[in-house]
Design a protein around this nucleic acid. Structure first.
Length: 495
RNA sequence: GGUCCUGUGGCCGAGUGGCUAGGCAGAGCUCUGCAAAAGCUUGUACAGCGGUUCGAAUCCGCUCGGGACCUCCA
C-alpha cells in the first residue's frame, strides 16, 4: 500500500467541508501553526493545538511527506484591553515583575518548551520568533502600503479593510460580513486606543506607534513602534513556506480576526491567498466555558503534572493529558474534568500494558481476528480528518486481541503477529506519540527488582505465601505493582 | 444584537439514514494459593415537539439548553 497515494481528508475551515488534501508540490507539505504568546506559563488550552498538530506532523511524515512545520513564538506586540490599552502585553508583564521584556520572553519560552517536551510534542522544523523578524514584517507592511491597501496615520499603519473588501472577500474564512462588523462597532466595541486614527473601526493595525512608556520598540519608516497583531504570522509563514502554502493550523478562537487578517495581509502584499487548507482545533472548556488567559480560568500544565491546582483532585501525567486530548476529535469541544482525566489515565495504562504484552506474544497456526482489516481501520481513522478518537478506539480493539491471544481465547498467525506488532507500535508510539512513563526506572532498579522477585518466587515455591505476600505488599508501598502471570512469570510496573 | 457551532447511556467521548463505536465506572461468571491483571457476558443512549422517509439519534423546521467569535486569547 502506497500511503502517499491514499486520499487524506481535512475539514477546511475555508470551505466548511472535508476536502481531499492535495499538496502544492507532490510529496512535500508545508505547515504553519500559530505558536504561543510567551508572556505567561503554558496551560491546558495550549496543549490541544500543539498535540493535535504534532500528530498531524507525525502522520504526514509517516505516510511519506517531506514536511516543513513552522510554529512561531510570539514575543512582541498584542494590545491589552484594560486601562493600559495600547501597551504591549509583554512590556506590561515585564514592568510588573521588574524584568526586561526579553527576560520574560526567555522564561516563558523555556517553560513552553519544557511542557512540549513533557507532552512528547516533537520539535518543529522552524520555530521563528516575531522579534527576530521585524525587518520582514516591515517589508511586508511596506508592500501592502505600496499596493495601496493600507494607510499611515500618526505614526501607525492600518490595513484598509473597507477598501480591500470591495474587491476581496474579507470575512469569508470566519463567516463574517463587513457591514455587520461596522454596524456593531459603535456600541459593543471597546474604546481601543487609536480608534480615531482609523478611517474605519474595522481596520486593523499593521504597525503601531510606540507610546513613551512602551519598552519594546523598533525603528521603522513610520517612526518608533512595534508590529501589529497579525503581521508576524504572515511575514514568517511567507518567509519559510512561501506566498502560498499547504496547511495553516490554530485554535478556533483565532479564526477572527487573526486568520482573517492574515489572509488580507498576504493578499494585500503578494496578491495571492496564503493558505490552501485552514485547520482549526476546538477549545478545551472548564465547566463548559473556554479555558483561557483572559477569563482567568486556566490551569497551567505544570499544575496538572504536579496536581497543585485546587480544581485538581490528583496529579495527571503529561501522557495522561496527551491521551485525554487524543481521545476526542480535534474539532470537538473537550471539557475538562477529573473523572475524564482519570478514565484516560486508566485507559492509557491498559493500552501500554497490552503493548508490553504484545512483545512476548507467541504466534499460533491461524488467526481468529482479521488483523489486516483492523490495520486498515486504524489508518482510515487518521486519513479521515485526523480522527484520533476513532484511531484510539481501534487500538483498544487491538488491546482486546492482544489480551485474548495472551489469555488463550484467541490465536494469531506468525505473519499477522508481525502486522499487529508493527501497526500497534507505530500508532501508539510513532503517530499518537504516547510513551510509557513508567519505563524510566533505570538499570539498577531492574537488577534489584529481579533479585527481589526471584526471592519471592522461591517463597512461593515453598508455599510460603505469608512471605511472598509480604514482599508484594512492601513493594506496593514503595510504588511498585507486581503481577503474577499465568505462565508463572512475574511482571512489575511503577504506579 | 449579529455570525457560527453544539446537546449522545452513571461519566468522558466517536459515528452514521436501516447493521457493535471506544474508554472509565457498575453487575455477573471464568482463571488464580490469594491479590492484581485479563477473558467472557451484561446495560440498549442519542434534549423536546413536529415533518420528510418503507425506515432517523443521523435530513428539515420549531422550541429549550450549552458554547465560540464579534477585543488580546490555543
Amino acid at each position: 500500500m502506497n500511503l502517499l497515494k491514499h486520499p487524506l481528508l481535512f475539514y477546511n475551515s475555508l470551505s466548511r467541508k472535508k476536502e481531499e488534501f492535495v499538496p502544492l508540490v507532490p510529496g512535500f507539505a508545508g505547515m504553519y501553526v500559530c505558536g504561543p504568546t510567551v508572556y505567561g506559563p503554558p496551560h491546558l488550552g495550549h496543549a490541544r493545538p500543539y498535540v493535535t498538530f504534532d500528530v498531524l506532523f507525525r502522520f504526514l511524515t509517516h505516510i511519506g511527506y517531506k514536511v516543513r512545520y513552522v510554529r512561531n513564538i510570539t514575543d512582541v506586540g498584542h494590545l491589552e484591553n484594560d486601562a493600559d490599552a495600547g501597551e504591549d502585553k509583554i512590556a506590561k508583564k515585564a514592568r510588573i515583575e521588574q524584568l526586561e521584556p526579553m527576560e520574560v520572553v526567555e522564561l516563558y519560552t523555556e517553560k513552553f518548551h519544557e511542557a512540549m517536551r513533557a507532552l512528547n510534542v516533537r520539535p518543529v522544523s522552524i520555530e521563528p520568533r516575531a522579534s527576530g523578524h521585524i525587518i520582514e514584517q516591515i517589508a511586508m507592511i511596506s508592500a501592502i502600503l505600496e499596493n495601496d491597501w493600507a494607510y499611515e496615520s500618526n505614526g501607525s499603519v492600518y490595513f484598509d479593510v473597507v477598501k480591500y473588501s470591495k474587491s476581496n472577500d474579507y470575512g469569508r474564512l470566519s463567516g463574517r460580513i463587513l457591514d455587520d462588523l461596522i454596524a456593531g462597532a459603535g456600541n459593543e466595541r471597546r474604546e481601543l486606543e487609536g480608534q480615531d486614527e482609523k478611517r474605519n473601526p474595522a481596520d486593523f493595525a499593521l504597525w503601531k506607534k510606540a507610546q513613551p512608556e512602551h519598552i519594546m520598540r523598533w525603528p521603522s519608516p513610520w517612526g518608533e513602534g512595534f508590529p501589529g497583531w497579525h503581521i508576524e504570522c504572515s511575514a514568517m509563514s511567507t518567509k519559510y513556506l512561501g506566498q502560498t502554502f499547504d496547511i495553516h493550523g490554530g485554535g478556533m478562537d483565532l479564526l477572527f480576526p487573526h486568520h482573517e487578517s492574515e489572509i488580507a495581509q498576504s493578499k494585500g502584499a503578494c496578491g495571492s491567498a496564503p493558505v490552501r487548507y485552514w485547520l482549526h482545533n476546538n477549545m478545551i472548556t472548564i465547566n463548559g466555558q473556554k479555558m483561557g488567559k483572559s477569563l482567568g480560568n486556566f490551569i497551567n500544565l505544570e499544575e496538572f503534572f504536579k496536581g497543585t491546582h485546587p480544581l485538581l483532585e490528583q496529579a495527571y501525567s503529561p501522557m495522561t493529558i496527551r491521551f485525554f486530548i487524543l481521545q476526542a476529535h480535534y474539532r470537538s469541544p473537550l471539557d475538562f474534568s477529573n473523572d475524564g482525566l482519570r478514565s484516560s489515565e486508566k485507559g492509557l495504562a491498559r493500552m501500554l500494558n497490552a503493548s508490553k504484552l504484545l512483545q512476548r506474544l507467541t504466534p499460533g497456526t491461524k488467526s481468529t481476528s482479521d488483523i489486516m482489516a483492523w490495520k486498515n481501520r486504524c489508518y482510515d481513522a487518521l486519513f479521515d480528518d485526523l480522527n484520533t478518537a476513532v484511531a484510539v478506539a481501534e487500538l483498544f480493539e487491538g488491546v482486546r486481541i492482544i489480551n485474548s491471544v495472551h489469555a488463550g481465547t484467541e490465536s494469531i498467525s506468525e505473519t499477522d503477529l508481525v502486522t499487529l506488532r508493527t501497526t500497534f507500535n507505530t500508532f501508539v508510539y510513532d503517530l499518537l506519540g504516547l510513551q510509557d512513563e513508567s519505563l524510566s526506572a533505570g538499570q539498577d532498579t531492574d537488577v534489584l527488582m529481579k533479585m527481589v522477585l526471584d526471592l519471592r518466587a522461591e517463597a512461593k515455591r515453598d508455599k510460603n505465601f505469608q512471605m511472598s505476600d509480604k514482599i508484594r505488599k512492601n513493594l506496593e508501598d514503595l510504588g511498585f505493582r507486581i503481577k503474577d502471570e499465568k505462565d508463572g512469570a512475574t511482571s512489575w510496573s511503577r504506579d
